[in-house]
């Protein structure tokens, strides 16, 4: 996964060589992260072939499985997004970050990563159940991630422009709310998905 992100960043570096415009810098970063999220999270239910699933099914409550998966995926996405941010700034420069409120930007990156993980965990489970991998996951997941992507793009753009916390906090509040609702929905729906 890390290799994927690093190579994506490096391709961007080869293509643009130093970005000073915050809007473009921001957009490129989120595009990389979006595709990284799809790639990383599509695997979360794929490794479960029949035997292992039956084993888990007899042992634990499906709800704890989906919550555990969501938490694990959220952690993965946070680590992944922070690492890709590190490589991104290393390769593409920090010119765009000059006026930024760094704390807010990192917060928006983390919330974005958690949000992607929250939405895509259930989608990955559905896609794996349908017996169709990354292709179906992209079709099912993209329209649901898009709203979150728009909100997070706006929030991180504001953070890059160094806008005060009082303005951006509504976005962060909205993102947290969205994450909580998404995980709750997954928690409610997953048991139906699991029984065969």
């Amino acid at each position: 996964m890390l290799l994927y992100v690093v190579s994506a960043v490096y391709v961007c570096y080869l293509a643009v060589k130093g970005l000073s415009l915050p809007a473009t810098w921001n957009a490129l970063y989120w595009i990389i992260l979006l595709f990284a999220a799809f790639n990383a999270l599509s695997r979360s239910f794929q490794r479960e072939d029949g035997g292992r699933q039956l084993y888990l099914y007899t042992l634990v409550d499906p709800r704890s499985v989906v919550v555990a998966r969501s938490v694990y995926n959220a952690l993965t996405m946070v680590v992944l997004s922070l690492l890709s941010l590190l490589f991104y700034t290393l390769f593409l420069g920090t010119e765009a970050l000059e006026q930024a409120a760094i704390g807010q930007f990192v917060l928006s990156v983390m919330l974005g990563g958690i949000g992607f993980a929250a939405v895509l965990t259930l989608i990955a489970a559905i896609a794996a159940r349908a017996g169709n991998g990354l292709g179906l996951m992209a079709i099912l997941g993209f329209p649901l991630v898009l709203p979150m992507l728009l909100a997070v793009l706006r929030a991180s753009k504001l953070a890059l422009d160094g806008v005060a916390w009082s303005v951006t906090s509504t976005y962060f509040g909205g993102l947290v709310l969205l994450d909580i609702i998404t995980v709750t929905l997954a928690w409610l729906l997953f048991p139906y998905l699991w029984r065969d």
Binding site: A130, I139, P143, I181, L189
Partner: peptide, 29 residues
């Protein structure tokens, strides 16, 4: 996407369940 999901599952009962889950999840979001 909901229709694509339906198209990719052959078994009727499984299709009904997966489609219903996606429908509810997507509608709420």
């Amino acid at each position: 996407a909901y229709l694509v999901l339906r198209g990719s599952v052959a078994d009727a009962h499984k299709r009904a369940r997966l489609a219903a889950i996606y429908n509810i999840f997507a509608f709420m979001l």
